[in-house]
Amino acid sequence: MVYILPIILFLVGLFGVLVKRNLIKMIISVSIMDYALFLFFALIGYRGEGMPPIELKGAEHVKFVDPLPQALVLTAIVIGLATTALLVGIAVRIYQKYGTFDIEKIRKLRG
């Protein structure tokens, strides 16, 4: 049931993106969603009392944790970094143009 926790965190992030009016807070919420997914991936790979998946001499029939999700999380973190960097870059340029981070005041496009 520990799987519920990342899902709650994911929903917190989703709520933040949908409700917050400040660009920076929206970026932080997106990052929270990302982190929730990373935690979820790490939990999938977890086995109770598992060892790191390294073959040692003498130690046979050891229970390993699943290494694949860990590799996936590393890749996903890198992607998340690129996304956040680009979002922050665009937010800075928006601030230069509009002089505000408030999404209500940034409305030149018609719906």
Binding site: V17, L23, L86, L87, R93, R107, K108, L109
Partner: peptide
């Protein structure tokens, strides 16, 4: 920039 931010979110 506004469109790109919306699109990216």
């Amino acid at each position: 920039l506004e469109a790109a931010f919306k699109y990216q979110i």
